[in-house]
Every structure is written in C-alpha cells, then in structure tokens.
C-alpha cells in the first residue's frame, strides 16, 4: 500500500464532500434570496429518501420568453434529443415582495442582473412552442413521512394555497433552496358542467363548462383583505402559450373602490360564482384572422381541446390601494386556480 497516495485519495474524497457542502452553504448565506411559486407532488428517491417534487411556474418557458439559441432549438423540427441537458440561463424580475418572475431564457450567460442557471429537461415539450427547464432546485428533501403529510395538507386543509420556495442565488446563477412557506390565501375552483343531452340516441355532445364557483379562504392566523372583483382568465402556461386571449385583457381596469374590499378573518372564506356564458368571460382565437376573430363565450368552447385556462386572483398593486381603508391588510400576490379545459377537464 502506498500510504501517502492512499491518504491523499482519502483526503480528496473528504474534500469533494466538503466542497459540495461548502459551496451551497456559501450561496445560502450570501446569495440574493428570491421567492418562486410552485406546485408540489411527492415522490421518493431510494438514495436520498422522501422529497417534495417542486414544479415551478418558470419550469415551462413559452416561446415568447425564449432568446438567442433557445429560439433556434424550438425551431428545429427534429426531436428534442440534441438539446437535452444543454445549459440555459433564466433571467428574473424580482418584485418588491421578493417574488421572482421569469423574463427570458437564453443559452448565453447574462452579463448582470438576477438569473438562475438550468438545463433543458429530459422531458422537453417542444410541440406547442415551449421548453421545459430543470434548475437543480426541483426537490425539497424531508423526513420520512413528511412528504405525504405535505401532500395531504395541500389537498385538505391547505387546498388551493400555493407553496412558495425561498431560493438563494449566487452571481453565477447557482440556486440553493433555503426553505418554503405557504401563502395566506387559498383559491379553490369548482366547475359546473351540465350532463349530456339524452333525448337523442346516441346521446348528443355534452356541453362544456358553463360556469365556476371560486372560494377564497384565509388560511393565515391574521385578518386579510381581498378585492372581490380582481379575478381574471389566464392561459395555463404549463401547456404552452395558447392561442386564446381573454377579452378582459384589453379592457381598461376600473379604479379600485372601497365597495370591492372584503375583510376575511382567519378561517373565513369568500365565495363567488362566475357565469361563463356572459360576454365578460369571452375569449378570442388569435389563430383566426379578420371577421372570424370574434369573441366567443367560454361556455361555448366545448370543442377547443387544446385550450387550457386558469382563473387568477390578481389584486391591484399596493400603490393603487393606498386610499382604501385597512390598505395594509390587503394581500397583493397572485393566486392562480387549478387549470381547466372548457370542454370539462380539470387538472
């Protein structure tokens, strides 16, 4: 046995582990902390035990946010294989509350600003012009049994409450998960769909979703104010950009009024019904041209299988609410519902 060489190898093994831990510890202590919105599921890794699988909003990047070489990858008509695992950089815009929003994805490292580095995921989804990215922060390891509890919480007492992850970023884009927290509000969506018409044989086509009931609940231990008219229809970005556009996007936003304000005590909920046959819940098909591009009520889109939407609670920014009573109690985050298809499917 060559003792010196063996000692050197043993020290190198310890050194590799110390470097791995030290690098992450340094980023966790000194990096810029941003908050990312997630939707968890709970798998199990035989080598590392239970973990909560974190799927970020920015995990699927639409074509409109792709830059430089990434756009060319999307245009490549071959399968995604040549681009798997390629290094990419996601630039982020961080708001006053620390929430980060994706503003672009490039294969070139940004010169500055806040960004996180990732890799093109193995399950690339290019057919609809979006790309799936893995940032190396998709797992939150927990003690055995805790992942199931978290998932049960998400389905039960914390139904509709988004989980946010605090992530520390180093200047090179390396991300380290620091922890997670639940938002104070939860949004639960229940769709309404009439049964199929049975007067004909075979039964006629079943109508699509005609409306939805939304329940906003205060899950925190303090009162929270909400704006009762701040719901909007958005495309489900996890399915790509989509070609339907809500008519409300183009409408001017009305000024905030105290009558819109509602104070929710801890555990209290606010219930609202949306009628999708009404014109304010219409969408236009951006794939159509000219006269064909007329608004269609959401309830009449039963055959649009490629459409996927969410209802989002998006109150006005804090600057617009300063004149309102108890303005400090208003929660200003965004709260998307589960995704649904006008033909009846709900994620």
């Amino acid at each position: 046995m060559k003792m010196k060489l063996a000692v050197a190898v043993a020290l190198a093994q310890v050194g590799v582990l110390a470097f791995m831990a030290g690098q992450r510890e340094w980023v966790a202590r000194t990096g810029r902390v941003v908050t990312l919105r997630t939707a968890p599921i709970d798998p199990n890794d035989p080598m590392r035990g239970e973990y909560v699988k974190l799927n970020y909003e920015m995990s699927v990047v639409p074509r409109s946010l792709c830059r430089d070489g990434v756009t060319a990858w999307l245009d490549d008509k071959r399968t995604a294989t040549p681009y798997l695992d390629r290094r990419v950089y996601a630039t982020l815009d961080v708001d006053a509350n620390g929430f980060a929003e994706l503003t672009g994805l490039s294969d070139l490292q940004p010169k500055g600003g806040t960004y996180v580095r990732g890799r093109v995921d193995s399950s690339v989804w290019q057919s609809n012009g979006s790309i799936r990215v893995r940032y190396g922060i998709e797992a939150l390891f927990v003690e055995e049994g805790a992942a199931k509890k978290l998932e049960d919480q998400r389905r039960g007492e914390k139904a509709g409450v988004p989980m946010d992850v605090d992530v520390a970023l180093d200047p090179g884009g390396l991300a380290v998960v620091k922890g997670y927290h639940w938002e104070p509000l939860g949004l639960v969506l229940t769709t309404e769909r009439p049964p199929p018409v049975r007067r004909t044989v075979p039964a006629g086509p079943r109508p699509g979703i005609q409306g939805a009931t939304l329940v906003l609940k205060n899950h925190s231990d303090r009162p929270v104010s909400i704006m009762t008219s701040s719901f909007r229809l958005i495309n489900n970005r996890l399915r790509g950009e989509g070609h339907f556009r809500w008519v409300g996007e183009d409408a001017a936003r009305s000024a905030v009024a105290p009558s819109d304000l509602r104070l929710l005590q801890p555990g209290e909920e606010f219930r609202v019904h949306l009628d999708f046959s009404r014109p304010e819940w219409s969408v236009t098909d951006t794939n159509k041209k000219g006269d064909e591009r007329l608004p269609v009520a959401l309830g009449a889109l039963a055959n649009a299988w490629d459409a996927s939407f969410r209802i989002e609670y998006a109150p006005p920014p804090a600057a617009e609410c300063t004149s309102l009573p108890d303005a400090g109690l208003i929660w200003h985050g965004r709260l998307p519902s589960r995704a649904f298809n006008p033909s009846g499917g709900v994620d």
């Binding site: 093994q13 582990l17 791995m20 992450r24 590392r48 190396g136 390891f141």
Partner: peptide
C-alpha cells in the same frame, strides 16, 4: 475498511444533496 470508506463517500454525495436540496444532474 477502505471499501466502507468509499461506500460512505458515496452516501455522503447523496447526503449533501439531501441537506442542500440539490436536484441536479
């Protein structure tokens, strides 16, 4: 003992990944 050391070294790689929630390649 040296085989044990190498096995624990491997365990260490995954433990560090677990402690710092690393889900990389």
């Amino acid at each position: 003992l040296c085989v044990l050391g190498t096995m624990v070294f491997g365990a260490g790689i995954w433990l560090v990944a677990q402690v710092y929630n690393i889900d990389e390649h």
